[in-house]
Amino acid sequence: MTSPADSVSWSAPFDGDLGDDLALALRLADAADAVSMARFDAADLEVSLKADASHVTEADLATERAIRGILAAERPSDGILGEEFGTSGDVTRQWIVDPIDGTANYLKGIPMWTTLIALAIDGVPRVGVASQPALGRRWWAATGLGAWTNVPGAEARRLQVSGVDRIEDASVSFQSIEQWDEVGRSDDLLRLSRAVWRDRGYGDTWPYMLLAEGRLEFVAEFGVKEYDIAALVPIITEAGGRFTDIDGADSIASRSSLATNGILHTPFLSLLTSAT
């Protein structure tokens, strides 16, 4: 899939009012959480394999249906790209949905899974919500409105990436060794791990949110689809960070991602492409 964002700078000014869209995205997340939590850790959860050999559960399907049902009623002219039911409608305003990011965790009863909801306008992700109901956590953002997270027992807190400005002081997450090895970049990963203060493979959505909270300085992965990362873009960028593909391009269609605290984005790009 070619995204209009391939030719649009994500830092370009945006004059629209996204307040209503963000409010809708949060309501979509509420509806999704109710559906997904109803079947989480169920002994009789139905699980099957898709054509690509990845798992899908009844909850993945039901959660995306719930989101699509609300959008059909409230935003009938908007398009949708969902992991389970594909693409429909116009791409000028397109909701991009991963009903359960981390299905392998979900079907094992591990609470580290996330519903991802984004709105892309002219190919640029402008609204993003990442909801982890099994842990009671949620992160959200819209262009010009900041990035936020819930704090149990307190008001929402605005997110801000870290101010770490040296690679040797950085804490990074690389998702998995297998991802890097599959694309022939295991040497780059080893060089990265030797250059930074701390490296861990936290996996899926959570490390991006740790970056937005100022707890990590770098997250990268390969093999990602638009629905895996679109919601993360506005959260990272509104928190002051930078989000590109692994080569530094503003794209969610390149099948790779690189998120940093912004200060270290160019140094990390240089490190990953330097000769051994």
Rank of each mutant, 00 (worst) to 15 (best):
Ser3Gly: 09
Pro4Val: 08
Pro4Trp: 02
Val8Ile: 11
Ala12Glu: 03
Ala12Trp: 02
Asp17Leu: 05
Leu18Ile: 10
Gly19Trp: 10
Leu22Ile: 09
Leu22Gly: 03
Ala34Trp: 09
Ser36Val: 12
Ser36Trp: 06
Met37Pro: 07
Arg39Leu: 12
Phe40Ala: 11
Phe40Ser: 01
Asp44His: 12
Leu45Val: 12
Leu45Arg: 13
Ala62Gly: 12
Thr63Asp: 10
Arg65Cys: 13
Ile67Ala: 05
Ile70His: 04
Ala72Pro: 03
Ala73Pro: 07
Leu81Gly: 09
Glu84Trp: 08
Phe85Ala: 13
Asp90Thr: 14
Arg93Gly: 02
Gln94Leu: 10
Trp95Arg: 08
Val97Ile: 14
Ile100Ala: 04
Asp101Thr: 12
Thr103Ile: 10
Thr103Arg: 05
Lys108Glu: 13
Lys108Val: 06
Ile110Tyr: 05
Pro111Cys: 05
Thr115Met: 11
Ile117Asp: 11
Gln132Asn: 09
Pro133Thr: 09
Arg137Lys: 14
Arg137Gly: 14
Arg137Cys: 08
Trp139Cys: 08
Gly144Ser: 00
Leu145His: 15
Leu145Ser: 14
Ala147Asn: 02
Gly153Val: 07
Glu155Arg: 08
Glu155Leu: 11
Leu159Ile: 04
Val164Ser: 12
Asp169Cys: 11
Ser171Glu: 09
Phe174Tyr: 15
Gln175Ile: 15
Ile177Thr: 12
Asp181Glu: 14
Trp197Glu: 15
Trp197Asn: 15
Trp197Gly: 15
Arg198Tyr: 10
Asp199Arg: 13
Gly201Tyr: 02
Tyr202Asp: 15
Met209Leu: 09
Leu211Gly: 01
Glu213Asp: 08
Leu216Met: 10
Phe218Gln: 03
Val219Pro: 07
Ala220Ile: 00
Phe222His: 06
Phe222Pro: 05
Lys225Gly: 11
Glu226Phe: 06
Asp228Asn: 14
Asp228Ile: 07
Leu232Pro: 03
Ile235Asn: 05
Glu238Pro: 11
Ala253Ser: 07
Ser254Val: 06
Ser256Asn: 05
His265Asn: 05
Leu272Val: 13
Thr276His: 10
